[in-house]
Structures are given as C-alpha cells and as structure tokens.
C-alpha cells in the first residue's frame, strides 16, 4: 500500500493555501478518504496542501444568531462540543454516528462534506439543517446552500482551486426536535441509509419539518414530499408512517454488495419513521 510520489506543503495561512490550490494542488484535511485512495493508487495527486496546520480553520463558534464551524473541526470535536450539543444537537448526534473512534479523531467536517461520499453521514443532517457552506478561492468567496452544493456522487459545486472554508447552521428554538437514524454498513461504518429529521411543533401541530436522506441515492437530498406530508398535522403513528413512506419516492436507489435498491428504499422509510418519532419525542 504505497502511494505515488507527491509534494506536500503545510501552509500556515489560508491565503497561502489558496494560492497553492489555485496552481493545481489538492487539499488534504483528515485524509480519511484521500489517503486510502492514494495508497491504492486510485488517486495520485502531485501536490498535497495540508489544511490542518492552518489554525483559523479549526473553530466552532456562535455569531450573529448562527453557528459557524471551521472546515478542519474533527468529527470528535463536533461530537463533544458543548455549544453544539446545546444549540445544534443534530450535528453532535450525527458526528457521533460516524465510522469509529479513530476516524472521528482524524476526519473533518470540511473534508467529509467536500468529498461528498453518497453514504457519508453529515450531508443528511446538513440538508435537514439547511446549512450554508462558505467556499473560498484565491480571489473569491461565495456561500452555497446545502441544497445546491451536492450535485452527484463525489461531485459538488466546488470549483477547482476552491475549498470549503466554513459550515453555517442555524440555532433552533426549544420547540424544535431533531434526530439522526442510521443503518450502519458493518465493514466501512458508512451509512447504508441515514435519515436526519428536524421538526418544529406549534401547539402540537407540526409547523415545520426538514428531512435529509443519505446513502440512498447518488447524493444526499431533502425529502420534501415527506416534509409536506407532516407539516400542518398533529401526526398520528399512521401519519408518520405515511410521511416516512414518501422519503424514497421517485429515488433511483443505490444497489451494491451490502444492500439492494429495494432494501435500501425500505430502510429509508423505516429510519425516517424512527427519526420522526424520535425527533418529536425530543421537543421539550
């Protein structure tokens, strides 16, 4: 398992990194996907720019009524953040469900989101949270919504030379409940399917529902039909089942060694129902 020869730079500042990336280098964060691909020689970047040495990419903070998470915040840092646990528990719950301890210590939110593995956990939560991603190039900065960011398997709207610098998520009030439910692929720890739910109730009526689904198709998406089926209702067990049944509707489901398309669709509905129930039960 020996990678091809490559150059490696560990810049101290974001500007320096963006300058190198503009000339064709590839960014390295936790290395949880890139390094194995390089060892198998499925990827052979000539130049790696390590983002972990840039101090001001690693933060989790509240500002302007929103939560800002730097690209190199590790899954463990997110999972154990007191601020996030209080103000965005969906993200800590999702981070805690990723892979195993070693992966959570090394992997970063920016790396995971930018890699856009169709079975990654974060994208489901970030879709449900309607997260925004700040993307920086050497001479540019733009903000893209999660809904627009994920294009296809391993494909995003990131342009060559751009990095995902920051993830922005909202702070919900106490009438909001969230839950992430996942079926684990036992070898990789990725999601066979994962469903993130965020619901708000007003006088027991669902005033707002957001459902993100990962693992089922080529990229994570929001199950808007299921959301609409919940909104305006004081959902009975039946209503929840019916809404959950809509999450996989019309989706061209993935099929592989670990789960057929039919089974994945079925699991998506099961986990959606479980996540909706759990999210509602968490509303204080």
């Amino acid at each position: 398992m020996i990678a091809q020869k490559f150059e490696y730079t560990a810049p101290k500042s974001l500007d320096e990194a963006l300058h190198l990336l503009a000339s064709g280098a590839k960014p390295l964060a936790g290395g949880m996907s890139l390094i194995p691909m390089m060892k198998l020689r499925l990827a052979a970047p000539e130049h790696l720019v390590d983002l972990r040495t840039i101090k001001d990419l690693n933060y989790i903070r509240e500002a302007g009524g929103q939560l800002h998470i730097g690209a190199t915040a590790s899954h463990y840092e997110i999972e154990s953040s007191a601020l996030l646990r209080q103000k965005c528990p969906l993200l800590t719950e999702t981070a805690a469900a990723i892979g195993d301890v070693q992966v959570r210590n090394m992997g970063t939110i920016g790396g995971s989101v930018a890699h856009a593995d169709p079975a990654a956990d974060y994208p489901a939560a970030l879709q449900a949270l309607e997260a925004k991603f700040v993307l920086n190039g050497a001479k540019s900065e733009r903000t893209v919504s999660a809904a627009d960011f994920f294009v296809d398997a391993f494909t995003t709207t990131l342009e060559p030379g751009e990095i995902l610098r920051e993830v922005i998520v909202p702070i919900d009030d106490a009438r909001t409940g969230t839950s992430y439910q996942k079926m684990v692929q036992p070898a990789s720890g990725f999601a066979i399917v994962g469903v993130a739910v965020r619901v708000r109730q007003n006088a027991r009526k669902v005033s707002f529902a957001r459902i993100g689904v990962t693992g089922l198709s080529n990229h994570a998406y929001r199950a808007t039909a299921a959301e609409k089926a919940l909104e305006g209702k004081t959902p009975s067990a039946n209503d929840i089942q019916n809404a959950a049944a809509l999450v996989a509707q019309g989706v061209d489901a993935n099929s592989d060694l670990h789960a057929s398309a039919d089974y994945r669709k079925h699991l998506a509905a099961v986990h959606a129902a479980r996540a909706i129930k759990s999210a509602i039960s968490r509303i204080t």
Partner: peptide
C-alpha cells in the same frame, strides 16, 4: 469483490 476492509466486515470490539 470484498478485497478491502471497507467491504469485508470483520468483527470489531463494538460489534
């Protein structure tokens, strides 16, 4: 087809 540890599921402590 199951030639990597991401596809071949050996038992781990938490399993």
């Amino acid at each position: 087809v199951t030639g990597e540890l991401t596809d071949y599921a050996v038992p781990r402590a938490q399993m």
